[in-house]
Design a protein around this nucleic acid. Structure first.
Lengths: 137, 137
DNA sequence: CAGCATCCAATTAGATACTG
DNA sequence: CAGTATCTAATTGGATGCTG
């Protein structure tokens, strides 16, 4: 009856089920920093410091944390060059490259449609302000 | 010299810049519940309760919060039918439909590649366990 | 340079009770 | 049914100091 050594799915993964492991990586991928890190690595390997400068606003802690998670999940490789000072290079794995393109698409969409979103917000917020019975009501 | 009434971008949005508004929607999109909600709405409009049942594990509070954000950003419409009991239907807007497809791709990738990710984790965790000097060292 | 460890502030998320 | 309001628990994230 084959191996039952560990829990694996074979065509039946469904992220809509709370217990399905696929929701775990979805949660890793569905993250602002993951999107930006993988997007940055789409252009080739980068060092830690290069990534930090590229992702404006990220703290060292968050970058380390994000990279560790991605490394653990097999989306990124971490190569340490035992030089002084140390040099550490991060690169997308084959597995990571696939999803990198998908994330790039979302980032590009964000950049291209930001104005439409901002406009929608203005409309929504103006409506919300009205509801709070204007003094002239 | 034209209008300068509010801050809008014209081809220069860059999510890698901390202050760029495009990072704000990226943050909205790069969210587990956003991915699942928009994915569910890809099949057509759904009521609040239908969504809640579809997204196993989401609380009423999180669903409300997610839907409000998406509505404000123009990705989802909210239609209230003044019946008793009330019926509220959510649907993706034209703007939302575009990005829905992109998010669906990420969810499908998660479902298709979950095994590879789980395998990578096993390898990583086994390595990490070794580092903690095994008693036989 | 590329981290780790720690402490603390802030945000997020869950549970619960109530309403038109 | 589809929420709102509130309280609390848990997680996240930032700042700082130190290290190979």
């Amino acid at each position: 009856m084959g191996t039952t050594d560990n829990l694996r799915f074979h065509g039946g993964a469904d992220a809509y089920l709370a217990a399905c492991p696929s929701r775990q990586i979805l949660d890793v991928l569905a993250n602002k920093w993951t999107m930006l890190v993988m997007g940055a690595l789409a252009g080739g390997p980068l060092r830690f410091g290069e990534l930090r400068r590229r992702l404006e606003g990220i703290t060292q802690k968050m970058l380390t944390q994000t990279l560790r998670t991605l490394e653990r999940d097999g989306l990124v490789t971490r190569t340490v060059y035992p030089t002084i000072p140390p040099k550490v290079q991060y690169a997308a794995t084959g597995l990571g490259e696939n999803v990198t393109e998908l994330m790039r698409a979302i980032r590009v969409w964000s950049e291209e449609n930001i104005n439409a979103v901002l406009d929608a917000r203005d409309v929504y917020d103006a409506r919300a302000a009205e509801e709070v019975q204007p003094v002239t009501a």
